[in-house]
Computed example of a mutant assay.
Amino acid sequence: MAAAEPEHVAWLSERQLARAWPTIRKTCLNATVKANGVRNDNRVSHSTWGESQWRTYHPADVARVARAIADGTAELQPHWRNDTPEAKLLDQRLRRENLPGAIGCALLVAIPLAIIVILLIISWNGSGSSSSPSYWH
């Protein structure tokens, strides 16, 4: 007969799960949970601003899988880890795919900023009349 589990177990948040498994990519935590049979629970909270949902994870299962990750017996795909050649290739591919978006975002910020700076320079230089002395000495 299995030992009775304590009634009040402090289940772990996703942030705590990520800290317990530092070699697992954050985007692959859920896949690792499913592949390794970690008990999890969907929690719901209702407030004035609506409903919030989040997952919590059983600490004994998280610790079991952390040991399995450390000794290499956990059920993992190579790209789920941060420290494999497959993960490095995936990172490079994602950087290449996201580069146009990053450039677009930079331009979206830089162009209006440049226009504002140019308008400020024009307004400062054009604020005095031609007969009055310049404030820029």
Rank of each mutant, 00 (worst) to 15 (best):
S52Y: 07
H46W: 11
H137A: 15
K34T: 10
S47A: 13
V33H: 00
P6K: 05
H8A: 05
N30M: 13
P85C: 02
S130T: 09
D41W: 10
P112A: 04
R43W: 07
Q92R: 15
R67A: 14
T73A: 09
E51N: 11
K88C: 10
A63V: 07
K26S: 15
I115L: 15
A102G: 08
T73W: 10
E97W: 02
S129L: 07
L108I: 11
N36L: 02
K26I: 05
H46I: 13
W49V: 08
V9G: 04
E51V: 15
T84D: 03
W136L: 14
I111L: 07
R96V: 14
A31M: 09
A35K: 02
I116R: 12
A114I: 09
P59Q: 04
N82R: 15
P85R: 04
Q16T: 04
W49H: 14
T32M: 02
I24P: 00
P59N: 09
E7Q: 15
C28P: 01
L119G: 12
E7D: 13
W49C: 13
E75L: 14
Q53G: 10
R67Y: 05
L29M: 03
L29D: 01
H46G: 09
E51S: 10
I111C: 11
S129M: 11
H58Y: 05
E7A: 13
K88S: 14
T84Q: 05
S131Q: 11
C28Y: 07
Q16Y: 00
E86C: 08
L113K: 12
W49P: 01
N36S: 04
A110G: 07
G101V: 03
V65Y: 03
P22N: 04
L107K: 14
E75V: 12
V109G: 11
S47T: 10
G128Q: 13
N42W: 10
E7H: 08
A10C: 08
Q77C: 06
T48Q: 12
P78H: 05
P112T: 01
A2K: 10
I118A: 12
N36A: 02
S131E: 12
Y57E: 00
A2F: 06
Q16L: 02
